[in-house]
Every structure is written in C-alpha cells, then in structure tokens.
C-alpha cells in the first residue's frame, strides 16, 4: 500500500506537470518540464521551514497532515471498492482543509483564499448530482458494485453522459489555472497556500498529487468501469490534456462570476437528476 501511495503521489504530480506544460504549449510558451511539480515537492522538502508569528501554530501544521490523511483515505476507499459517498465526503472536506490553510496563518491573502474556497462550495453540488444519478442506475454506492454494473450494461459514460459532464466540471473546478481557480488567483499571491512554505508546502504538494490522482482515477472507474490499470493511467493523461485545453483557452472568472456559473451548472444538474429520477 505504501508503494502504491508513493506511485499515486508521483503520478498525480506528473499529471499536474503535464497540465502546466500543455497549457504553456497551447499558449505558445515553452513551459516548465513535465516533472516540475515533482521537483517542487522535493525542493520544498529541504527548504528552511518555520511557523509565522501570527499563525495558529497547531492548526497551521495539523491541517497539512489532515490534507494528506484525507486523500490517502480516499485512495484506500477507491482501491478497496468502498462507498463513493465517502469519497464525496472527503472531497467536500477538502474545502475545510483549504479554509484551514487560509485562516491558520493570520495573513489576509491566505484568509481571502480560504473565504473564496468556502463561498465556491456550489461547485461541489454537481458531484453530488453525479453520485445520485449513478446510484439511481446502479442501485448502489459501492464502487465495486458500480464496476459490476458496467461489466453487464456497458460504460456509464454512454448511459448517463450528463452525469459524466457534471463530474468533469467538478474536476475542472479543482484544476489549477482553470476558469474557477479563484482560490489561488494572482491578486491573492498564492491564495490559501501563500504562507505555507518549506516542508509544509511539500506536504501540500503531496496532497495535491494524491487529490489529482484520486479524482481522475475515480472518474475513469465510475464512468468507464474496471479497465486494466495501464488503460486507466492512459485515460487519466487524456483527461488531463482535455482539462488543460479548457484551462488554457478560458480566462479565470471573477469570484462573483465563478460562483454564479457554478450555481447555474448546479441548477441544471439538479433538474437533470430530478427528471431522471421521475422517468428512470
């Protein structure tokens, strides 16, 4: 399990590196090498580290461990074929982690990043709609049962495509440099993670790698079924590249517009789920 965890972190960071490289090439810039995020993680691990004088010390450090802990748990649930509801819960709790990162330092930049994270909670609702629609068809929330359902009926991607779109948008809202990345926008320096440097930032990089791996793996598993690992990894790269295109070609929205667009998407998805619930 430790070996797989390390692999997931490394591959997740590699996907984030591919994301940065693809965005740069689309925008006709050379961009960093694809392993840049891995190098960042290693570099931060050995940088000098301390806790700011204005920080809530225990929370400042503890929230980094919580971030790594929740995504490690999500990976375990995913591999064990457990309930998708737990992963949904962990995904939502990531908001609190971002909020904790932002508020713990005392810095106004971090604070605004954390506040933006909380006010954009509407972006999580499409995930719930996606989960609800999948449960409606498969009559289960266990990932192993969802895979079995697809073995019999074919990929859910073709059965409930809009649910896949909803989950795609959820992943998009979590990708850096995207239209909904208001928590890390440049006017806030680095948003909620501004004051976390050195080994704390390395921990954050680890959790980001895990988060990316888990979310993309979950998408492939829930909508394509139990395909071999190599195909799953290839699918994750393709998915990342498609997200990069969206991020490279769309401007970052203002916080107000970002929340409004997310709420409109949420409304559409709720209506879609309600219609399916009535006619399914």
């Amino acid at each position: 399990m430790i070996g797989y965890l390390l692999f997931a972190v490394t591959f997740g960071l590699l996907l984030l590196g591919i994301h940065r490289k693809a965005i740069a090439r689309i925008q006709r810039r050379p961009g960093p090498p694809v392993w840049q995020e891995i190098l960042h993680m290693l570099k931060f691990s050995f940088k000098s580290t301390w806790i700011p004088a204005t920080a809530s010390d225990t929370l400042f450090v503890g929230v980094v461990l919580v971030a790594i802990g929740i995504w490690s748990a999500a990976l375990f649930v995913l591999l064990a074929g457990g309930s998708i509801l737990i992963i949904f819960g962990i995904y939502m709790l990531h908001k609190i982690v971002e909020h904790g990162f932002g508020l713990s330092s005392g810095s106004p930049y971090g604070k605004f990043g954390g506040v933006r994270s909380v006010i954009s909670a509407a972006s999580e609702i499409p995930l719930f709609v996606s989960v609800a629609v999948v449960a409606l068809y498969t009559q289960s929330l266990d990932i192993s049962s969802i895979i079995q359902y697809q073995n019999v009926h074919g990929p859910l991607l073709f059965i409930v495509p809009l649910a896949a779109v909803a989950m795609y948008l959820v992943i998009l809202s979590k990708m850096p440099f995207g239209p909904f990345s208001i928590v890390e926008s440049k006017e806030l320096v680095s948003g909620y993670k501004t004051e976390h440097f050195g080994v704390w930032r390395a921990g954050l990089q680890v959790s980001n790698g895990l988060k990316t791996y888990v979310l993309l793996f979950l998408f492939i598993t829930v909508f394509m079924g139990g395909i071999p690992l190599w195909w799953t990894l290839a699918g994750m790269v393709v998915l990342t590249l498609s997200l990069s295109f969206v991020c490279a070609l769309s401007p970052m929205l203002s916080p107000f517009d970002s929340v409004t667009v997310q709420m409109v998407i949420t409304g559409i998805m709720v209506v879609y789920a309600a219609v399916l619930g009535v006619f399914a």
Partner: peptide, 16 residues
Amino acid sequence: VFTLFAVIAKPERQVD
C-alpha cells in the same frame, strides 16, 4: 481531529 485542534491551538493573530 478538529476538536483537538480547537483544544490545543492558539488563536491566529489576524493581520489587518
């Protein structure tokens, strides 16, 4: 875990 943080942690000194 977060309750333990509330027990142990000192409050932040918000910078304005």
